[in-house]
């Protein structure tokens, strides 16, 4: 695992929907694209399955950054699941800010099954962002 200059190795969770972004992640894997190893993928059926409680609990439980990745808008296997995800995380981000957690620790985006390279790119960038933010000590300080 890579460490940043000061030895900080972030813990990152990536929720990926079964139909697009997980397949995208898989493609990135089988294509042997170079990726940081600081993230763990949790496969869910749809981005709408990711409830804000999970994100809250992950951030409270010592995770430094959370990604929610679904199908592009219009492509959700369940038609409008990602519409809901997009709205609820837009709201949650603002709320995290009011409560003192940098909203940049939550990243929401869309990756199709054929976008292996894009998956690699956004994960790499998010890991960099979180490294710059530094460790998240959770709301308990």
């Amino acid at each position: 695992m890579e460490k940043s200059a000061d030895g900080f190795k972030p813990k990152i969770l990536a929720f990926c929907c079964n139909w697009c972004s997980y397949a995208g992640a898989d493609l990135a894997g089988v294509s042997r694209l170079q990726m940081p190893s600081d993230f763990r993928v949790i496969r869910v059926m749809c981005s709408a399955r990711v409830s804000p409680e999970w994100v809250i609990k992950a951030l409270a439980g010592g995770v430094d950054g959370v990604m929610v990745l679904g199908c592009h808008i219009g492509d959700c296997h369940y038609i409008s699941g990602n519409h809901r995800a997009k709205k609820r995380f837009a709201l949650l981000k603002e709320m995290l800010g009011y409560l003192g957690i940098n909203p940049a620790r939550l990243y929401v985006d869309w990756v199709s099954a054929s976008e292996g390279a894009r998956f690699q790119q956004i994960v790499t960038e998010f890991v960099e962002t979180v490294k710059e933010l530094g460790p998240h000590h959770g709301p308990e300080g």
Binding site: P52, E53, I56, K57, L59, A60, L91, L92, M95, L99, G138, P139, E140
Partner: peptide, 24 residues
């Protein structure tokens, strides 16, 4: 699963953040 029984103050991320989101 979310708020541990018998613990005060509650883990506030679990209690206060979740309530704030639920009423949003």
């Amino acid at each position: 699963l979310w708020v541990q029984p018998g613990v005060v103050p509650p883990d506030y991320a679990a209690f206060q953040f979740i309530r704030a989101y639920h009423i949003s």
